[in-house]
Design a protein around this nucleic acid. Sequence first.
DNA 1: AACCCTTGCAACCGCCATGAC
DNA 2: GGTCATGGCGGTTGCAAGGGT
Length: 209
Amino acid sequence: MGRSPCCEKAHTNKGAWTKEEDERLIAHIKVHGEGCWRSLPKAAGLRRCGKSCRLRWINYLRPDLKRGNFTQEEDELIIKLHGHLGNKWSLIAAKLPGRTDNEIKNYWNTHIKRKLLSRGIDPATHRPVMESAEKKDEKVANGEVGQEASSWQCPDLNLELCISLPSQEPVKMEKTTLCFSCGSSECKCDTNFLGLSSGVLDYRNAHMK
DNA sequence: AACCCTTGCAACCGCCATGAC
DNA sequence: GGTCATGGCGGTTGCAAGGGT
């Protein structure tokens, strides 16, 4: 007995959403909130799969979304985050307010990949292309393919994550972060990078969704 | 004008994680 | 502990728009 489908495919619309469908979805969520996605389509009078409704809401209809071009700062932040997190688009999106994982993923695949390649950087490894190719040949020869991605560490960011109960007291920690503006772990500049205080990004405070 | 190719992005698909029972 | 339903995520696809010939 296999898993039942998430929706009745025979009676669901597919493809681009119409204005009317958008309005129905928005109106329903305004009244009832983002409850159970599975039952939402029926309740909202939509002939759509629950997953489809969720995607449409999260990626396009949410009121807090920032539409429009990515800024230079956002570009650089995405590149740095990708260097550490890889294709963890949802984690990257969590650090870019108003941007969605789908949007960032598309932007990466269409713009940033090309941008990095034009700079001579391999978008997969964030190393210079020639070096990446040489290392890969070397690893293939040594039978070590697939190990470098997990062992290499981008020097720019500290993404050491931990899970803990919310603390009432300010957490004391060693200053092991790096400043986006000056690149120093001893940062004393007072810049504000994308709303990150003191220009310092410390992922130990990152909250998983 | 017509055709072809490329690009950008919205949407879908399949898998995995999690929670309820 | 096993099973199932559901939500969430990343990879991929499909299509419209734009540009080049």
